[in-house]
Design a protein around this nucleic acid. Structure first.
Lengths: 296, 296
DNA sequence: ATTTTGTCTTTTATCGTGAAAAAACATTTT
DNA sequence: AAAATGTTTTTTCACGATAAAAGACAAAAT
């Protein structure tokens, strides 16, 4: 397996959506900008679309001939970046197989199991190491540190330090800062989600991340902002793994966020601290509760 | 260039030191443990030493025949890990060439310039990215963020949060904790260095790192402990780059450390905070002063 | 004079490969 | 029996090669 053209396939699928919405496609540079890919990829997409009879392509004119059908789309699993595929398989193993501390991680075995080259696995592990779950022995294997209670406590300790500091910075921002209108939008989405929480509670996760990233951005510190990647990653897989009481948890979190947002708006430091602390405490509790006792 | 046997060469050089100190070498597993390499490498070393007439090797007996000379050693530049070579060259470029934000980093060009494969450079850049100085554009080049005043401030902000918290944890440790005797040793080294500071001030850097890592270890938080890698890296190259007033700086820092250590021992939180803050403030000032105005 | 397209060049992403180094297994020695 | 040596297997490290994707440059169209 060489490269799997996932950039092309993903952009192609997204371009099919554009086709349904209009009867002609824009210029190549515009398409590239809209899809976030280079012109080279755009031209590959256009060539394929012409071949499939989706468009008539002649220089500047790219007329839509028919609406795309299900068959026109590339299968979703072929559109994922290799790094994402590796990450998912690795986390699956970690969470399913139990993650005893001290276990060794074998690059070659992982690569064979997933069906990719060792280089990609190596690069993944290096990137993954910043999450604090694995550690490298020089010239030798990686060692699993375990998804343990200790890990969760260390992670949340930093999270609480960083978020409290960010929240302070946020509350101190001038009222004409554009960040407040972004907060308005997010607050509205919270209310909307809360109104129909019983059938839309699965959307909470994405909103949660957007809200916390916004708060962290107020710190204007790249290390704080980047650390949210660690939190987001852990919570993402953690929630995939543990679904008990999800609806209730999300509803509580939505309420806590609204209190937290109100506190930020008030500019009252004591209120901000209180609301932030309360929310982070319950987030920590949920995370801790979901770690099986046997992994300690 | 395949692999350069740097593990073997480095271990070989260190093994030469052992030869000078005794008239027979221990067993293969013991040697491996002492040198931190596998038995495979130990046997390669022993074979070469026999060939060079340094030892007479027959199964368990490894008699030293002569003392090693200068010529027996492998050149030092061949003993460095490839990752270290790349790091040094990269930092050299960064600090010498000025580091304008927005500049792009080209993997292929870097690899050619250093004379290594692209894979090694890629892996280095991935590892290096956690220092917050470069950022990856998906499917494209890396972007330099610049060694700017903003970077230094963001770095020191986190450092101060982490070290203050660690210092608190440290001061609260029970007096029978073995960490206190490690601190004793480090304190003695401080006094010894201070006594002959005019000719040994270059040794400060290593002692500084050991002291701060000890403090950070009291946090029992992997993210705090790991973050010291970022600090150590930046300060290491920063001091290589900027040597003005080095002796005075180091002398002041030694005094501040001693006050800081005394405060830790006292267990008085207010004293600890004061001594820690004072030292970190002057460390930050030195770092900031050394960043050329033109890089802002 | 800009945009847009057509063509060509460079860089990144990924793989397979082989030597270096580690690790596992078998045999011998104390 | 335990530890050391001898031998074989496995894994990591680093490279060069190649398709995918980006980027650069020239020619054409508005």
């Amino acid at each position: 397996m060489a490269k799997q053209k996932n950039v092309y396939k993903d952009a192609y699928n997204r371009c099919l959506e554009m086709i349904s919405a209009s009867d002609a496609l824009p210029s190549e540079p515009d398409l590239g900008a809209a899809l976030g890919v280079s012109r080279t990829t755009v031209r590959t997409i256009l060539a394929k679309m012409e071949e499939s009879g989706l468009i008539a392509w002649n220089k500047r004119s790219k007329l839509v001939l028919r609406d795309p059908t299900e068959d026109d789309y590339f299968p979703e699993e072929e559109t994922d970046a290799l790094s994402l595929i590796i990450e998912r398989k690795f986390m699956e193993r970690l969470l399913a197989g139990g993650s005893q501390a001290g276990m060794q991680v074998n690059e070659l075995e992982l690569a064979r199991e997933i069906g990719v080259g060792t280089t990609s696995v190596r690069e993944f592990l290096i990137r993954f190491s910043r999450f604090g779950l694995i550690e490298k022995r020089r010239n030798s294997h990686w060692v699993l540190k375990g998804f343990t209670k200790a890990f969760a406590l260390e992670l949340t300790e930093i999270r609480e330090m960083f978020e409290l500091r960010s929240a302070h910075a946020f509350a101190a921002l001038g009222k004409n800062n554009p960040i407040w209108s972004t907060l308005d939008v997010i607050e509205d989405e919270h209310r909307a989600l809360l109104a129909s929480v019983s059938d839309r509670y699965l959307e909470f996760s994405a909103l949660d991340e957007r809200f916390h990233r916004l708060v962290h951005s107020a710190s204007h510190n790249r290390f704080i902002v980047d650390f949210y990647d660690v939190i987001a990653m852990i919570f993402h897989y953690h929630y995939q793994w543990n679904k008990t009481g999800e609806r209730e948890r999300n509803e509580v979190a939505l309420q806590e966020h609204l209190r937290y947002i109100a506190a930020l708006r008030s500019g009252d430091i004591a209120k901000v601290e209180e609301a932030c602390r309360r929310h982070l405490r319950s987030a920590r509790e949920t995370l801790l509760r979901s770690i099986p006792e046997t992994w300690q």
